[in-house]
Computed example of a mutant assay.
Amino acid sequence: MNKIPATVITGFLGAGKTTLIRHLIENAGGRRLALIINEFGDVGVDGALVKGCGDDACPEEDIIELANGCICCTVADDFLPTMQRLLDRPTPPDHIIIETSGLALPKPLVKAFQWPDIRTRATVDGVIALIDADALAAGRFAHDEEALAAARAADPTLDHDSPIEELFEDQLACADLVLLNKTDLVDADTLATLEQDLAGEIRPGVRIIRTARGQIDPAILLGLDAGVENQIDARPSHHDDEDDHDHDDFESFIVDLGVLGNPEPLLAALTQATAAHDILRVKGFVAVAGRPARLVIQAVGPRIQHHYDRPWQANEQRTSRLVVIGQHGLDRAAIEAALGAQTVAA
């Protein structure tokens, strides 16, 4: 019996995973796709963005959200039952796409495909690691080596890798294909340097492909036939010797803002708060008075983007909610005050 292929799309916060998935849906080529979307935080922003595309290749009932934490930590409780329900359908999907949280380790997820109820019916076709070229060029995934050397001289017990650096390296180590995304934000010389550096972090034979806005032929991603679950032990990670993996190094919370009369003060406040508090990621929807469409806000480090995507639906509450993600120790009260003080109720 043929196994249903599953593609795992991993990548750090804001790499463009959801944009890539929307592109895959819009160019499915007749495949019936099912999506499992995981988010670090309690608001399903990515799932809501994908559902908004309304494509027949992936109807809303085939988009499953796991928004209760990191998928690599909830495999038994959430992921396995979800997979079983998909596989037990009278007409199962042709291909399953799994978008992990930007803070997830792909390896525990791949190992779940060794589970007896899964391994005979599904296989990991490939692990795709998406990299934000602009963020990588800015050094957001690695230590400043000179500063690190000075710190280690002062304290020889200092760990080499930061939580972000370890996570980034683990996602690369598990990849069958690396997409260097957002290349439109980086010049050609910088891209060449990034590719050279990445080549030292990935396994031999793993390709690096440049993309902008997640635009790539789906045939390149779907159909790798890697059978990753059968060779996962050959892909080492920083967390192989750990019985449990958790995300105590990171935290998230929700900022509720109501309806805004003008989003510009919020965007300005968000720019200042991101810099002041070293916020990694902000995403969410904003309700603007007099505007029928919801405003999508996507912030990755200091880079903040926003656009109106679709009208608010009749059954939706028109309100503004942002998910804020950063390393442990965020000053929630100060961030909420900074953002809330700038809102103007309609």
Rank of each mutant, 00 (worst) to 15 (best):
F168V: 06
F141H: 12
T183I: 10
T123V: 15
G126C: 06
T123R: 12
E146C: 11
T157K: 11
L191S: 01
G139N: 04
F141G: 02
I128K: 06
E169L: 15
C174H: 07
T157Q: 12
C174Q: 13
E169H: 14
L179T: 01
T183H: 03
L185C: 11
L167C: 04
T157P: 05
D132R: 01
A133Q: 05
F168T: 05
H143T: 13
A151W: 11
T123W: 12
D176F: 02
L130D: 06
V178N: 02
A153W: 06
P163E: 04
L177N: 03
A192N: 12
V127M: 09
P163S: 09
K182C: 00
A154Y: 07
T190F: 03
V127W: 03
D189K: 13
K182V: 00
L158Q: 13
L185N: 08
P156W: 00
T157H: 12
V124L: 00
A192Y: 02
V186R: 01
T190N: 08
T190C: 13
H160V: 15
A135L: 10
T157W: 10
C174L: 10
L185K: 10
L172C: 09
D159A: 14
D187A: 05
A154E: 15
H160C: 11
A153I: 09
R140E: 14
D161H: 15
L179C: 05
L177K: 07
D159T: 12
D125S: 08
I131A: 09
A147Q: 11
N181G: 04
P156H: 00
F168E: 05
P156C: 04
A149Q: 14
V178M: 05
D176R: 00
I131R: 03
V124E: 02
V186F: 05
A154M: 11
A133H: 08
R140K: 15
A129V: 08
A151Y: 09
L148K: 07
D176T: 05
D125E: 06
H160S: 12
